[in-house]
Design a protein around this nucleic acid. Structure first.
Lengths: 115, 115
DNA sequence: TTATGATATAACTATATACTTATATAATAT
DNA sequence: ATATTATATAAGTATATAGTTATATCATAA
């Protein structure tokens, strides 16, 4: 399933999505843990709409899925996505953004969320 | 060497370069055979400067190297590039553009080039 | 019901990008 | 020398993109 070769055109559109520092970092974080928007907001020097818009693009491409829990919407990588193997292959060769993940975990956002 | 993890920022810039259909196709073709500009020109519905500009970007990133042979300049993937393993990993999951490669080989461009 | 907090959407803007055409450079052939 | 062929570079343009601020939606809490 992971090993099915991908069309050039399809690959290009995925790579274009991942070819943005902010989005690639988001995806790399989501590969470690699910996050709500306000958690991601902790580690980017950027407005909330900007983060939401990036997540929207990732969702539209099927790379990411969302799940509402009360007030919060949790985003996570969509392992069911037919391109997940392709994406995983890329993430595996990248450094995990430990610092940002720590920053999220040390923020009190999660406490407020109660998750 | 291939397995050293890559910084997010560096990965993003490579993925952005590959996230263009034309460039990704070029790279995918060069993964099979070296080509001169006029050969690539055979398989893209695009002006010569456009192809040259794409090759320039790939060269600037170190992904591609060039070698002049007389009138022609041959482009090929730069296996010495520290990111070659990363790129190769992506190409391995993609369909080879056989049709375009055939098109290049059946064109008489190579005959004229005498290579 | 009203206020608050989390997120999404809309509208706008500045910049980046992928093309184009025109021209320059460089090698070969006549 | 001059013409031809291959390629690069310059300049211009239309569109895409990533950000912004303002506002809407939706869930919870008071």
């Amino acid at each position: 399933m992971e090993k099915l070769p991908i069309e050039v055109e399809q690959a290009a559109s995925i790579l274009k999505l991942l070819g943005d520092k902010t989005r690639l970092t988001i995806v790399s974080i989501l590969n470690q843990r699910e996050c709500c928007v306000c958690e991601l907001l902790e580690v980017f020097d950027m407005s909330q709409p900007s983060i939401s818009q990036h997540l929207r693009k990732l969702k539209d491409a099927g790379m990411v899925k969302e799940e509402r829990r009360g007030q919060w919407i949790y985003y996570s990588l969509n392992h069911q996505c037919e391109l997940y193997g392709f994406i995983k292959g890329i993430l595996e060769r990248m450094l995990v953004p430990e610092e940002k993940i720590q920053q999220i975990e040390q923020s009190n956002v999660t406490l407020k969320c109660g998750c």
